[in-house]
């Protein structure tokens, strides 16, 4: 009985209009302890890259370091903003601030230490990258391999020219 109801509900919900926006009303802290409501990125007039990472994730650091090298050029051209969501839990969270500063990253860093946002967006592994622009998800990718940041930026360039 229970199963039937749930499965029925699931299917029922499938028929609800497909959404444009992606981020629910969820508040997380940034590195300065300020509240950041993730839903604010549903409707921005510049592209926003939401990148999930952790201090212990090698490919994540490779990705954010690769973007760091070209971030200034990207910002000048497209006003793109990168929000790096750290999924470090209490064990490694304290490493985030010194690591970010040590690497000179200028991203907005958001702390998702009990994985509320990660769970909400059904993200299984980091790195995981989502690009939103004017309320639409224009790019989404799990994992990072060298060079995929260039592919992502090509998509951003093609959308802002339209």
């Amino acid at each position: 009985m229970k199963k039937t109801i749930v499965i029925g509900l699931l299917f029922f919900c499938f028929f609800v209009d497909a959404q444009q926006s992606k981020f629910p009303n969820l508040t997380l802290k940034n590195l300065d302890g300020k509240d950041i409501n993730i839903s604010q990125y549903n409707n921005t007039d510049h592209p926003v890259i939401i990148s999930f990472w952790a201090t212990w994730c090698g490919p994540c650091i490779n990705e954010l370091s690769a973007i760091h090298n070209v971030y200034q050029d990207w910002q000048d051209e497209s006003a793109v903003e990168l929000v790096a969501v750290s999924i470090d839990d209490a064990r490694t969270k304290k490493r985030v601030k010194p690591m970010v500063n040590g690497k000179g990253w200028e991203y907005e860093i958001v702390l998702d230490d009990n994985h509320d946002l990660k769970r909400t967006l059904n993200i299984i592994n980091v790195p995981y990258t989502i690009v939103v622009y004017k309320g639409n998800v224009i790019y989404e990718h799990s994992n990072y391999t060298p060079g995929s940041e260039r592919e992502m930026y090509k998509v951003i360039q093609s959308k802002i020219k339209k």
């Binding site: 609800v16 209009d17 497909a18 959404q19 926006s21 992606k22 629910p24 909400t120 967006l121 059904n122």
Partner: peptide, 17 residues
């Protein structure tokens, strides 16, 4: 669902994993 019917401009978000 009912509420969504009423205010169509405020669409719901469905995330499935």
């Amino acid at each position: 669902f009912a509420q969504e019917e009423q205010e169509n401009q405020n669409k719901g978000i469905l995330n499935i994993g």
